[in-house]
């Protein structure tokens, strides 16, 4: 890749305002670090992974809305985790977490367990207990 071939695709960039360093060849055949504001190929790949997470998030929200799962599952997706990761982070078995996804059981969860989820997900206990009016994504905060 030559310096003038380094992509600078600002549209739909997933870097925010940041620029990333890539290595490219200058006119003498030497390599130099060049700042790139994005490459559409990479942005699409990242976006595809994010879309998948957002779909799961929306689906979990809908099921929580319908009373088929607890808000906990929605917040797990919101924090970009899956069951395997939440299990590792909280130190609870997957089957236990799955059980806590049942709304009736989640409602009766004791403070100690709620605190564990709150710490694992980095969200307040109050937040965990209620579903927002709409599914949120990324850094949109739950109040």
């Amino acid at each position: 890749m030559k310096i003038d071939e380094v992509p600078q695709d600002t549209e739909n960039s997933t870097y925010g305002d940041a620029r990333k360093l890539v290595y490219a060849v200058d006119e003498h055949g030497d390599f130099v670090g060049v700042k790139s504001s994005g490459w559409v190929v990479e942005a699409e790949a990242t976006q595809s992974a994010l879309n998948l997470i957002e779909q799961q998030c929306d689906a979990a929200w809908q099921r929580a809305r319908n009373g088929e799962t607890a808000p906990l599952e929605y917040y797990m997706c919101y924090q970009r985790m899956d069951l395997a990761l939440l299990s590792q982070v909280s130190g609870l078995f997957q089957w236990r977490i799955r059980r806590h996804f049942r709304p009736a059981i989640f409602k009766k969860l004791n403070h100690k367990l709620l605190r564990r989820y709150s710490e694992a997900l980095g969200l307040g206990i109050d937040t965990l207990q209620q579903l927002p009016d709409h599914p949120l994504h990324g850094r949109q905060a739950h109040v």
Binding site: T14, Y15, D17, A18, T46, A49, L85, G122, G138, R139
Partner: peptide
């Protein structure tokens, strides 16, 4: 958990 990362780049 790093607050300065762009949102699209935040993965575990």
């Amino acid at each position: 958990w790093l607050p300065y990362f762009p949102d699209a780049m935040r993965f575990h």
